[in-house]
């Protein structure tokens, strides 16, 4: 399949007042094919979230290019839908109104946007909770609301920054299954930012391993586990092999990150 997303030589340096500049990303190159499920994994401080913000159009001042279908994008793009790590549902809107939000912004009439919103609410398994407010939902349900809201925007690329990072492991695995169902149903391109190795292996076609600061791509591991896939795959020996391989790659980077963080604390 043709590449839908191309990240070309992307670098980003943060210049904080009074501090020395921090190079978060250094020459990242990555191509993602249409319909592919790719995870980006790395230790804290590897620039995952910076890369997420650059692809999502939330950071403009970076070096290099982000191209969709060969065209450079600048700022938020209709083809890229974003799901955030933090709680991002609007507390004052019901599930239905949250999911319908991007359609409301596009000026679609109420009946049509509610019909579309209901379709995606059903897809994420929240049927019956349309009139509930976020405060009445569990953490997993809130994140599914956020996923449905992004799906309602009908982007070609779903960009997710540790969307289930705040959830417990079991809920996270079950929601991983749900994401695989959605991916199979909509055939979207999925780009997941995560620090969870099992989640990356469970879901992805390829896992991109990033180094500790400055973030560069250390290795790309194709995951050749059979599809359709569910969380039951974690019981297989092959799954364990992938997890072991990824941890071997990440261990050195994570240790470097931890040592640097401790040195920084000791210096203060």
């Amino acid at each position: 399949m043709a590449d839908i997303l191309e990240i070309k030589n992307v670098s980003k340096t943060y210049n904080a007042d009074g501090d020395s500049p921090v190079k978060a990303l250094d020459g990242v190159d990555l191509n993602i094919a249409e319909g592919e499920f790719v995870s980006i994994i790395g230790p804290s401080g590897c620039g995952k979230s910076t890369l997420f913000n650059i692809i999502g159009g939330l950071i403009d001042d970076h070096d290099g290019e982000v191209l969709i279908d060969g065209h450079e994008v600048d700022g938020a793009h209709k083809d890229v839908g974003v799901v955030f790590q933090e709680e991002s549902t609007f507390p004052w809107r019901s599930t239905l109104d949250n999911v319908a939000f991007p359609l409301e912004i596009e000026g679609i009439d109420k009946a049509e946007r509610e019909e579309t919103a209901r379709k995606f609410i059903k897809l994420v398994g929240l049927e019956g909770f349309e009139n509930h407010f976020p405060a009445q939902l569990s953490g997993g349900m809130k994140q599914r609301t956020a996923v449905a809201r992004t799906l309602a925007y009908e982007p070609r690329i779903m960009l997710m920054d540790e969307p289930f990072g705040a959830l417990d492991e079991q809920t996270r695995m079950l929601l991983g299954d749900k994401m695989l169902e959605i991916w199979a149903a909509l055939n979207q391109t999925m780009l997941l930012i995560t620090h969870n190795i099992t989640e990356a292996v469970q879901l992805s076609d390829r896992v991109v391993v990033m180094s500790y600061r400055p973030g560069i791509i250390k290795e790309i591991i194709p995951i050749e586990l059979p599809r359709p896939r569910t969380s039951e795959v974690i019981a297989t020996a092959e799954f364990g092999t992938y997890v072991g391989k990824l941890w071997t790659l990440l261990r050195e980077e994570a240790s470097r990150g931890m040592a640097e963080a401790e040195a920084s604390i000791a210096a203060t």
Partner: peptide, 19 residues
């Protein structure tokens, strides 16, 4: 994060304030 949600949906300045 909520502001970033708005930006990701290309929300105008006016709607960002109102909604």
């Amino acid at each position: 994060t909520l502001l970033n949600v708005g930006r990701s949906f290309n929300v105008s300045e006016r709607d960002m304030f109102r909604k």
